[in-house]
Amino acid sequence: MMDLRQLRYFIAIAEQGSFSRAAVVLHVAQPALSLHVRNMEAALGTALLVRTPRGVELTEAGTILLRHARIIMDQITVAAEEVRGRHSDPAGDVRLGLPGTIGQILAVPLITAANQRYPRIKLRIAEAMSGFILEWMREGRIDLAVLYGQAAEHGIRTEQLLDEQLQFFGPAEGLRSEVLPPPHSPLAFAEIARLPLILPGIGHGLRDLLGRHAQVHQVELNTVIDVESYSNIKALVAEGLGYSILPEHAIAAEVAEARLRSWPVAAPGITRGIYLAHSASRPMTSAVSTVLALARETLHDLARTGRWIGATEPADAAR
C-alpha cells in the first residue's frame, strides 16, 4: 500500500525531474527516495519512472499516478483547513500562470494585494505563452491562470472577466507610399488586411484571432514578417518595415511619446477576451479560492480605473 509520504515524495521527484534535486527540496537522502519509488513500483506492479541522462521521466503509469497524487494531496489540504477552521486566515502556496503581456499589468498589483490582505498565502507566478500555461494546468503544476480566450479542454473551467481592445498602428513617419487617414481615425479591417503587416506567427493566440477575423470578412492578411515578441514587433514597425495590430495597452506608451501612430479598427472593431481559469476536477484549497477571488477583483479594478488601457468589462460582468 502507498502512503501520503510516498505520494508527496513522488510528486517532488516528478516535478524536479531528478532524484537529487528532489532530495534537496525535501531534505531527504536520495537513497531513501529511490527506495520509496521502488516500493511503490513493486506495490503497483509497473514502472513509474525511467532514468535518462538528464534525470528521470514519467512512464505512462507514472503520469496517471502523478495526476491522482496531486488531487489526493490537495484534498488532504482542503480537509485539514476545514477541520482547523482556517478559512478566515487562509495560508499556503498558490501557483498562478500568466501570459507575459498580462503579467506586466496584473502581477504587481495582485502580489501587493495578496501580501497586504493575506500574508500567510505565498503567491507564485509563472509566465509563459498561453499554450504552455494550459499544459501546466492540465498537469496540475499550477492552480489558476489568466488566459486570452476560453479553454476548451475538459476539466478546465473559465470565466470571462474583461474584453481587450486591439489597435492598428504604424511608424511615426509613415511608410513608403501608403495613404492613411489621420491617426485616431477609424480604419476598416479590410483595408488594414491589405497593408504590409508584422504579426506573431501562426499558432500564436493573437495571430489566430486575426486569422479568424479575416476569414469571417473574406479577406487575407498581408503578413510580411512573423515575429513572436511584442517588443520586436513594435521596433520593426517603428523602423518602417510594416504595420501591426496589438492590444491598446501594449502600444500606449509609444503612441503617447509620438514614436508610433495608431488607428482604431473599424467595421467592426476587434477585441479579445480575458479569462480566469482553474481546474474543475481538482479540489480547491482555501488559499486558492481566496486568490481566485482576489484576481477577479484586481482585474475588474484595473479595467475600471484605466490602469489596463483598452480593457473593459463585458456587459454581463459589469456591476
Rank of each mutant, 00 (worst) to 15 (best):
V56R: 01
R120Y: 02
I274C: 08
H184K: 06
A113M: 07
E82M: 12
L35M: 13
T158C: 15
H184T: 15
L206V: 03
R8M: 07
P264Y: 11
L166Y: 04
P183M: 00
Q218S: 15
R319G: 14
V227P: 09
T52G: 05
E164A: 14
V83Y: 01
L197K: 08
I225G: 12
G201D: 09
R70N: 01
H36Q: 12
R307C: 02
S20G: 05
Q104S: 11
A43T: 12
Y243T: 07
Y9Q: 14
S229V: 06
E173S: 11
D208M: 13
G174N: 08
P109W: 01
G131H: 14
L161W: 03
G62L: 08
D301N: 10
A29M: 13
Q6M: 13
I11C: 14
I225T: 15
H278T: 03
Q6D: 01
L161H: 07
N222I: 05
E191P: 00
A32K: 12
A293W: 00
L302W: 02
V255H: 00
G17S: 05
G205E: 04
P182Q: 13
A80D: 12
A266M: 06
L161E: 00
S286H: 10
P109R: 00
G242M: 02
A152M: 12
E135V: 09
E15L: 14
V179W: 07
G55A: 04
I13W: 08
I309C: 04
R67S: 13
L147N: 06
S34G: 15
D93V: 11
L299S: 01
T271H: 09
T63P: 04
G62C: 06
S130G: 15
T223C: 11
H213A: 06
E153G: 03
A12Y: 05
R272S: 03
Q16G: 09
K234F: 05
H184F: 14
D89H: 05
D316S: 09
A267Q: 15
G205W: 01
G269V: 08
K234Y: 08
R212L: 13
L166E: 01
G92A: 08
L58C: 04
M137N: 02
A235Y: 04
F132A: 14
D163H: 02
L187T: 08
G201S: 12
M129D: 14
I71D: 11
I251T: 13
P247Q: 13
M284R: 09
T63Q: 15
P109I: 01
T298V: 15
R70G: 02
R259S: 14
A287V: 00
Q30E: 15
A318M: 11
V28N: 10
G45L: 05
L65N: 09
H249K: 07
H213L: 04
V146F: 06
Q165N: 11
